[in-house]
Amino acid sequence: KKVIATKVLGTVKWFNVRNGYGFINRNDTKEDVFVHQTAIKKNNPRKYLRSVGDGETVEFDVVEGEKGAEAANVTGPGGVPVQGSKYAADR
């Protein structure tokens, strides 16, 4: 997939743990970017499923997906693991 931007910061608008996807609002352009659970590179080690939490600040790359921009290599700011959704089960 073609990389559009790297190391972008954004805020998770919403993320559905059961369906495994959601949207991140970019801090720079204010665009909403699709995020799939497979794009989460550093999950919270205490969580079973990969997820990001609503309102969480994340860092990610933006790539060209089939339906427009989507997030890739999602981590917390500075490459730390994401916090994850409060609806995702703990280990």
Results as ranks from 00 to 15, higher is better:
87 Y>Q: 11
87 Y>T: 08
14 W>V: 03
2 K>M: 06
73 N>L: 04
8 V>Y: 01
79 G>W: 04
48 Y>S: 08
5 A>L: 08
59 E>W: 07
56 E>P: 02
65 G>Y: 06
86 K>W: 09
4 I>Q: 06
58 V>N: 00
74 V>N: 01
24 I>R: 00
8 V>T: 07
20 G>I: 02
13 K>Q: 07
37 Q>P: 02
55 G>L: 08
86 K>M: 11
90 D>T: 10
24 I>Y: 00
84 G>S: 06
22 G>E: 01
52 V>N: 02
57 T>N: 14
5 A>T: 15
13 K>Y: 03
72 A>W: 13
35 V>N: 01
33 V>C: 07
66 E>L: 13
16 N>Y: 02
61 D>Q: 06
41 K>N: 10
10 G>I: 00
38 T>A: 08
74 V>S: 00
3 V>E: 08
46 R>G: 14
27 N>V: 08
77 P>W: 07
71 A>E: 00
64 E>V: 11
21 Y>C: 03
12 V>M: 03
4 I>C: 07
30 K>V: 05
26 R>N: 03
89 A>R: 13
44 N>I: 05
47 K>A: 08
64 E>F: 09
24 I>N: 00
21 Y>S: 02
14 W>A: 02
78 G>Y: 14
14 W>C: 04
41 K>H: 12
2 K>T: 06
26 R>H: 03
40 I>L: 07
3 V>T: 09
67 K>S: 09
44 N>F: 05
64 E>L: 13
15 F>Y: 10
31 E>W: 03
63 V>L: 13
61 D>K: 03
35 V>D: 01
82 V>E: 04
61 D>S: 09
13 K>I: 11
86 K>R: 13
71 A>T: 03
65 G>W: 05
46 R>E: 12
87 Y>K: 10
76 G>S: 07
89 A>I: 13
82 V>Y: 04
60 F>R: 00
66 E>C: 13
52 V>G: 02
29 T>H: 03
62 V>G: 00
13 K>R: 09
13 K>G: 04
9 L>V: 14
3 V>Y: 15
54 D>A: 12
44 N>R: 07
77 P>Y: 06
1 K>M: 06
43 N>A: 11
56 E>N: 03
76 G>V: 07
20 G>H: 15
41 K>Y: 14
62 V>M: 09
50 R>C: 10
38 T>P: 00
32 D>G: 02
83 Q>R: 10
48 Y>M: 11
17 V>T: 10
7 K>Q: 14
9 L>G: 08
67 K>F: 06
71 A>K: 00
19 N>K: 15
13 K>S: 11
90 D>P: 10
19 N>V: 14
2 K>Q: 06
23 F>E: 02
63 V>K: 08
88 A>N: 08
84 G>L: 05
23 F>A: 02
59 E>T: 08
24 I>G: 01
17 V>D: 04
26 R>V: 07
63 V>R: 07
14 W>K: 03
18 R>T: 11
11 T>R: 12
84 G>W: 05
79 G>N: 12
1 K>E: 06
49 L>G: 05
85 S>V: 07
75 T>N: 04
74 V>H: 00
51 S>D: 05
22 G>P: 00
42 K>C: 10
11 T>D: 05
20 G>K: 14
74 V>Y: 00
46 R>D: 15
77 P>G: 04
16 N>A: 03
38 T>L: 09
13 K>V: 07
79 G>R: 07
23 F>W: 07
17 V>E: 07
54 D>T: 15
88 A>Q: 07
88 A>F: 06
20 G>C: 07
65 G>F: 04
83 Q>G: 12
52 V>F: 07
8 V>R: 06
38 T>F: 07
48 Y>A: 09
20 G>M: 04
49 L>H: 07
45 P>D: 11
68 G>T: 07
69 A>H: 13
12 V>E: 01
27 N>H: 15
5 A>E: 15
80 V>Q: 12
66 E>H: 14
90 D>F: 09
74 V>P: 00
27 N>P: 05
22 G>C: 01
80 V>T: 13
20 G>T: 02
55 G>P: 02
70 E>D: 03
27 N>Y: 13
45 P>H: 15
37 Q>K: 13
91 R>I: 11
47 K>Q: 09
29 T>Y: 03
49 L>I: 06
9 L>A: 14
6 T>P: 12
34 F>I: 04
47 K>F: 07
91 R>H: 08
36 H>T: 04
73 N>C: 08
73 N>P: 00
11 T>I: 13
81 P>M: 11
61 D>M: 08
46 R>W: 10
34 F>G: 01
68 G>Q: 04
71 A>H: 00
87 Y>V: 07
53 G>C: 15
63 V>Q: 07
45 P>E: 11
82 V>S: 04
69 A>C: 13
61 D>F: 02
57 T>M: 15
72 A>V: 14
66 E>W: 13
27 N>R: 10
41 K>I: 15
40 I>N: 01
68 G>N: 06
77 P>Q: 08
26 R>Q: 04
36 H>V: 03
47 K>V: 07
37 Q>L: 13
2 K>F: 07
32 D>S: 06
45 P>S: 13
75 T>S: 10
36 H>D: 03
91 R>Y: 09
50 R>F: 08
86 K>P: 09
10 G>C: 00
52 V>M: 09
64 E>P: 07
65 G>P: 00
61 D>E: 07
22 G>N: 01
60 F>D: 01
18 R>K: 14
43 N>M: 11
85 S>K: 08
68 G>M: 04
28 D>V: 02
24 I>L: 12
25 N>R: 13
28 D>T: 02
50 R>L: 08
19 N>A: 15
